[in-house]
Design a protein around this nucleic acid. Sequence first.
DNA 1: CCGATATTGAAAACGAATTTCAATATCTTT
DNA 2: AAAGATATTGAAATTCGTTTTCAATATCGG
Lengths: 148, 148
Amino acid sequence: MNEIEVFKDHLRAAGLKDTVQRKVVLNTFLNTEKHVSVDDLYRLVNRAKRHVGYATVHRTMKLIAESGLAREVMFNDGVVRFDHCYGREHKHHHHLVCTQCKKVIEFSSQALDREEQRILSKHGFESVSHRYEIFGLCRECRQKANRK
Amino acid sequence: MNEIEVFKDHLRAAGLKDTVQRKVVLNTFLNTEKHVSVDDLYRLVNRAKRHVGYATVHRTMKLIAESGLAREVMFNDGVVRFDHCYGREHKHHHHLVCTQCKKVIEFSSQALDREEQRILSKHGFESVSHRYEIFGLCRECRQKANRK
DNA sequence: CCGATATTGAAAACGAATTTCAATATCTTT
DNA sequence: AAAGATATTGAAATTCGTTTTCAATATCGG
């Protein structure tokens, strides 16, 4: 089952309609890499032939997130971005965010996942979602800083 | 060295002035528990005799965070809150956030800290700050849900 | 006390997100 | 294919929390 079907099924299940604009936004999102803001997507969508309004891009990204294909992430600049949640290369991960060059490094860790389960059990807590970001300096920025 | 001195030293070191309003905001913050928003603080400050403007509460909380006594946390509702970062009972911790009742449970974990160090080393990354929140249902809300 | 300058606070501005609402599109039924 | 129900669109307006503006005021060192 591919991503387009996932989204269609989500719309159907929710009694919502499968519009051209929604298709365009989804396809644009599927063709991006990394973390894209609504603004980025709005620009990408409208670079092609089909115009889609800003509010519609927003609403559609919310729907895509609900379908499970994306999730919202927020780094320290207050901008909401969408992270891809499908396929092998987009498996469960977290972020190292360089505050200098803004690069985002993705990482995953089974030890973290195991510890998380222990914490959840200890508190009788049921997890729906989580986020884990580390902010600091990446290797390159550290080297640049050390050169001065 | 107590928290008031920490803040004073921070102001002095930055060439900033020690105003009455800043003292009032700091004292109000020190007398709260858990995570307080600017709005909460603004209301608390102005419940007492001394009026302090909204913008000043905002600015002062930013300064307090810079001094290390507080840090900004953002849960999923888009509101910036301040977390206490001083004293024994406010040691380094993370959050379990119940999406139903909004309760926030604090937790800490040495295993998490160790794994984080491993990840940082692996990527040559130098951490300045981090955040780790788990969103879901607390024990009580799960029990309520199971009762229906 | 004086002078330099940081700070205040109310209002304005900002920026991202959300809402409004008339027009349009989608989709099911006939 | 047409009709009807209703979701959706998009531009503009609104919302909301944060930040900036700026004349008046406060702080603090000399």
